[in-house]
Simulated scan of single mutants.
Amino acid sequence: MPQERYARGLAKLEEIDGEAGTRVIDSLHDIAPDFARYLIEFPFGDIYSRPGLDLRSREIAVVAALTAMGNAAPQLKVHIGGALNVGVTRDEIVEVIMQMAVYAGFPAALNGLFAAREVFAARAMEHPG
């Protein structure tokens, strides 16, 4: 069962976040390899793999939550990329982040918009045209 959970989580992580997710996991191997495993098994192997929501809906929720937190810019950038990977549009991401100004305040929404701008610019550099 643990191996199945890990394999399911790793596949889901790669489906959503691609290289960005792999970089996060790899960055933990020298300091907390168990934590890297937990990140694969629980969020991606257990939660993201549940049938109740599609990946698009899940990533919209994560972008909203991380924006509202206001202190998770690196994770927000990874999940903005993940949202784009699963079909959320740039305009939808911007709207979700703007919506968070109502509940989390303007500073959190501004930080979210700045993170989105960075992700969008990096994507444009990777895929010009």
Rank of each mutant, 00 (worst) to 15 (best):
M1K: 06
M1V: 12
Q3S: 13
Q3F: 00
E4F: 03
A7C: 04
A7H: 11
R8Y: 02
R8V: 12
G9D: 03
G9Y: 01
L10A: 12
A11F: 00
L13Q: 13
L13G: 04
E14C: 05
E14H: 10
E15P: 01
E15V: 08
D17P: 00
D17H: 15
D17K: 14
D17N: 13
G18T: 08
A20G: 03
G21T: 03
R23I: 06
D26Q: 15
D26M: 10
S27T: 02
L28K: 15
D30K: 14
P33D: 15
P33M: 05
P33F: 04
F35Q: 14
A36E: 00
I40P: 04
E41K: 10
P43Q: 11
G45F: 03
I47A: 11
Y48G: 03
Y48D: 00
S49V: 00
G52K: 15
D54F: 02
D54N: 12
L55I: 00
L55Q: 05
L55H: 13
R56E: 08
S57M: 14
A61C: 10
A61H: 04
A61Q: 08
V63H: 07
A64C: 07
A64T: 04
A65R: 08
T67K: 07
A68G: 11
M69S: 11
M69C: 11
G70V: 01
G70F: 03
G70A: 07
N71K: 15
A72F: 00
A73N: 05
P74D: 05
P74R: 12
Q75R: 11
L76P: 09
K77P: 12
K77Q: 15
V78R: 09
V78G: 03
H79G: 00
H79L: 01
H79F: 02
A83G: 06
A83E: 08
A83N: 08
L84I: 10
N85F: 04
V86P: 05
V88G: 04
T89D: 02
T89F: 00
R90G: 14
R90A: 13
E92G: 03
E92I: 06
E92Y: 05
I93S: 01
E95D: 12
I97D: 07
M98T: 04
Q99T: 13
A101T: 08
Y103S: 09
Y103N: 04
Y103I: 00
Y103C: 02
A104M: 01
G105M: 08
G105P: 07
G105N: 05
A108Y: 06
A108L: 01
A109W: 00
L110W: 05
G112Q: 06
L113T: 09
A116I: 12
A116D: 10
R117I: 03
V119Y: 09
V119H: 10
V119L: 02
V119P: 06
F120C: 08
R123A: 14
R123N: 14
A124V: 10
G129L: 13
G129Y: 02
